[in-house]
Computed example of a mutant assay.
Amino acid sequence: MIELLDFFDNPIVTRVTKLILWVVFIVLIIGFLRKLLKKRISDVSIRYKAQKGVEVFGYLLIGLLILLSFTVENIENYTVIIGLFTAGITFTLQELILSIAGSFYIFFVRVYKPGDRIEINGIKGDVIDIDSIYTTMMEIGEWVSSDNYSGRIVKISNAFVFKGPIKNYSMDFPFVWDELDILITFDSDVELAKKIMLDTATNLLSEYTESYLAKWEEMVAHYYIENARLEPTLALRLTDNWIAINLRYITDYKLRRVTKNNLYYHISQAVLGTYGKVTLASTTLQLLKIPELDVNIKK
């Protein structure tokens, strides 16, 4: 019992105990303020930013307290103890420390933000929340086709921003290039088919033209990137069975599936309106009748 009292009478132990109590107090205050802001602020965007601001300020205050606690006189008396303690904490909580560092990196460098569509650690989805440890995403893909939600909420450690590439679909240039193939027979009017595809794509995607041209000019001015063709383009490929016409175009990253569906529909309707000048190809199997044999065997 006496040894325990002597232990707590140690000024270093007293200082660490006070620090822990202050940290717990600040964490409780952060939680209280977040709940208060949630009740008082109705706007989702403002509420989210206010809660994150309180959280970031609280963690900065904790870091400042830790720094002030160890920056005192006579620090040489317990430098070794602090060093061993810090090394042990760092090794044990290295993933947590990386996650917290990752949250500051995401916040200040603007790697991504809530509302962005990203792919990180092989998982693709829309970012719906970023806290001090995890990034929360609404997953897309997996067992569903194209860019549809799977319905699963995925939490990814913020430490992954230091461990691999981050693919952002919406930062700076919220458009993506996509492609589709139309297969026509060899006896079709190829020039007419090309005109149908280009005209359809140009008409359907005209609403994006001003937006993606302006965004692309900003990209070229901000990054070291060569200029690219943004209008729809075609490429032909000959196979043993048909002529494949590949259409390449730009679309909004959230409307990729809808855009492709509209293009397929309008192109197919236009092809039907050519009355046989352009025919869509398909894999066919031709069965040949074996000729009858009249065999007369004489005894």
Rank of each mutant, 00 (worst) to 15 (best):
R229K: 09
A214S: 11
T209H: 11
A201Q: 14
T202W: 11
N227D: 06
L234C: 02
E226K: 08
H222I: 05
L213V: 12
L230M: 06
N227P: 00
L213M: 13
L230P: 03
D240Q: 14
T233W: 04
W242N: 14
H222L: 07
A228V: 03
W242H: 15
T202K: 15
K215N: 11
Y212H: 11
L234R: 03
S206N: 13
Y212A: 08
T200W: 12
N241W: 09
E226C: 00
E210V: 10
A201I: 11
S211H: 10
E217T: 06
M219Y: 01
E207V: 15
A228D: 07
Y208V: 06
Y212E: 06
W242G: 01
Y223F: 07
N241Q: 13
L236F: 04
L234D: 01
E207I: 14
T200A: 14
R237Y: 11
N227T: 02
R237P: 01
L205E: 10
K215M: 07
A214L: 08
K215E: 12
T202P: 12
R229D: 10
A228E: 11
N203P: 04
N227M: 04
T202D: 15
L236H: 05
I243N: 02
L213Y: 12
T239K: 07
Y212Q: 05
E218Y: 05
I243S: 02
A221D: 05
Y224V: 06
D240E: 15
N241K: 12
W242Q: 10
I225Y: 03
E217V: 08
A201G: 13
A235E: 13
T233N: 00
A235T: 11
E226R: 03
V220D: 04
P232K: 01
V220R: 08
Y208H: 12
L236R: 10
R237C: 08
E217M: 07
I225E: 03
A201V: 11
I243R: 02
E217G: 00
E210K: 11
T209N: 11
L234V: 00
I243L: 08
K215F: 04
Y223M: 06
S211Q: 15
R229W: 00
S206Y: 10
E210I: 10
E231V: 03
T239Q: 07
I225S: 01
E231C: 04
N203A: 15
L204K: 05
S211G: 09
T239I: 06
N241E: 15
L213W: 07
R237G: 11
A201D: 14
N227Q: 00
N203K: 15
A228K: 09
Y208K: 06
T202M: 15
L234T: 05
L213G: 05
N241I: 12
R229V: 09
K215W: 06
P232N: 05
E210R: 10
L204E: 09
Y224I: 07
L230F: 02
Y223I: 01
N203W: 12
V220K: 08
E210A: 13
R237D: 14
P232M: 04
E218G: 04
L204F: 02
E217Y: 04
T239P: 05
